[in-house]
């Protein structure tokens, strides 16, 4: 039986680890290579790096980070942030990323998903979706809207429609990130996660809002997510990766418990 996955997301700015609260007030909290290694040894199932570097001339720093991590961490590694074309994706793959996350650029130009799927395989293309809750309207029937640019720009695109469109275009996996919940530590948006997970046949990763172990349990059961993504919970040392996995395992969630 397939295990549920615990994924840690590391936001990287100028080669350093950062954690944002509602996408603003980022601050440096350490060395991404060191953190990645620490989580790997402690049983993490998968790693995501998100490059939030603002200036494009510093992008190559990220390739170095990915390369160093890939030399020491032997679990799937996913990288996103600023992927605009196939050549960005291929560069990251060569540096050592298995999977490539596309986000804002795909909302603006959906063919990016099919181009990447063609170049690196569907299973390696992750569509990362930043979503906010709105009042359901004719244009936004699910009551959830796509936003881009780190949550600043609403797109008038229905999130459920976009999830299905992403699957159709060849995404192999979806990250469902609630920007309302992000950084609050009050729990994932489980209604949103479940709605999307029930609608698609590709794996769904719940993101945004985890603060306590029970939030992960809720996302993986009630939210029907295939994986739960955590950030601040583990980055600040409040919880260990192994502790979260044991908690979920003890509550009956199938997790990988030997590593």
């Amino acid at each position: 039986m397939l295990s549920k996955r615990l994924i840690a997301c590391l936001d990287v700015r100028d080669g350093k680890l950062a954690k944002s609260i509602k996408f603003v007030d980022t601050k440096d909290i350490g060395d991404p290579v060191e953190k990645a290694r620490e989580y790997y040894v402690d049983g993490l199932d998968e790693l995501v790096f998100y490059d939030i570097t603002a200036s494009s001339d510093k992008r190559n720093i990220m390739l170095d980070v990915v390369e160093h991590v890939a030399e020491q961490v032997f679990i799937p590694l996913s990288v996103g942030g600023g992927v605009r074309n196939v050549s960005d994706a291929t560069d990251l793959r060569l540096a050592g990323a298995e999977k490539i996350n596309v986000n804002s650029a795909a909302v603006k130009r959906p063919e990016l998903i099919s181009e990447c799927a063609e170049a690196i395989g569907n299973q390696n293309v992750v569509l990362s979706m930043d979503i906010r809750k709105v009042e359901a309207t004719k244009e936004l029937p699910s009551g959830y809207e796509m936003v881009i640019n780190g949550g600043r720009t609403p797109m008038g695109i229905d999130a459920l429609w976009w999830a299905l469109e992403g699957e159709r275009l060849g995404a192999g996996e979806l990250v469902v990130n609630s920007i309302d919940a992000d950084g609050t530590r009050n729990g994932y948006e489980n209604n949103l996660t479940r709605m999307i997970s029930e609608a698609v046949r590709i794996p769904v990763i719940a993101s945004g809002g985890a603060g306590k172990p029970e939030h992960l349990y809720d996302a993986l059961t009630e939210g029907k997510a295939d994986a739960a993504l955590v950030a601040s919970m583990v980055h600040y040392g409040d919880y260990r990766v192994s502790e979260l996995k044991s908690y979920l395992h003890d509550r009956g969630v199938k997790m990988r418990m030997s590593w």
Partner: peptide
């Protein structure tokens, strides 16, 4: 089972 996704992706025994 419609809840099982394809590809089979992740850790398995």
């Amino acid at each position: 089972d419609p809840a099982l996704k394809v590809p089979h992706m992740g850790w398995n025994e």
